[in-house]
């Protein structure tokens, strides 16, 4: 009887091992979701120049090319009136624009008159607004969800891609520091 018990005790401990191992894995998983929410896939366009384009501007209707992009670091924001999260993001963009940061809009697969109405009624954070009616330029940019925002430096090289709406905390904590570093490079140059 005694020897029997001696045999069983370590086995009982072993029965807890699966649970312990699992809890360990859980911590890793939750941590990785929590600390690095992977809303960005590595984009093949990172560190590449903005693809060339020739697109109409939304309000002036004149045709724009890469040369008309701002000469400082700027944000390229892909948006549409049919996109709900864009509405959520809009006030944040207004705040960013108020800081004096240049934002170029890309009105994506949208109706021009609706887009103009939108800007007139809730405010226009964009320095200029390119119109990509069929989403062709979107393909070149690798847009697979709206909204999406690209951080672009003064050399017109894409440095970072953010997918989904920018919340004000994301801007403060993550995107603004990256953008500051792009601006800082310009000042040195």
């Amino acid at each position: 009887m005694v020897s029997h018990k001696r045999n069983v005790a370590p086995l009982r401990m072993a029965l807890w091992l699966p649970l312990v191992a699992f809890v360990g894995l859980c911590i890793v998983f939750f941590a990785s979701l929590e600390f690095s929410p992977r809303s960005e896939l590595p984009s093949p366009l990172i560190d590449r120049p903005v693809p060339t384009f020739s697109l109409p501007e939304l309000q002036s209707v004149s045709v724009m090319t890469s040369d008309d992009l701002p000469e400082e670091a700027f944000l390229l924001n892909v948006w549409a009136t049919w996109c709900f999260p864009c509405r959520e993001e809009h006030p944040v963009l207004m705040d960013i624009a108020a800081e004096g940061i240049a934002i170029v809009g890309l009105s994506y697969k949208d109706d021009d008159s609706k887009a103009i109405d939108w800007l007139n009624s809730i405010g226009d954070p964009y320095r200029l607004n390119l119109v990509d009616r069929d989403g062709e330029f979107g393909v070149d940019l690798g847009v697979y969800g709206v909204p999406a925002t690209y951080l672009i430096d003064s050399e017109r090289t894409i440095r970072y891609k953010h997918i989904g709406p920018i919340s004000s905390s994301q801007w403060r904590q993550k995107l603004a520091p990256i953008f500051k570093s792009l601006q800082a490079v310009d000042e040195h140059a």
Binding site: L11, R12, W16, P18, L19, F22, C26, F30
Partner: peptide, 21 residues
């Protein structure tokens, strides 16, 4: 989904630890 996994595995493995002996 992680919560579902955690609940399913956590509860069943706890049950296992207590009862499989």
């Amino acid at each position: 989904l992680a919560t579902i996994v955690a609940l399913v595995a956590g509860l069943s493995l706890s049950l296992y630890a207590f009862r499989a002996g």
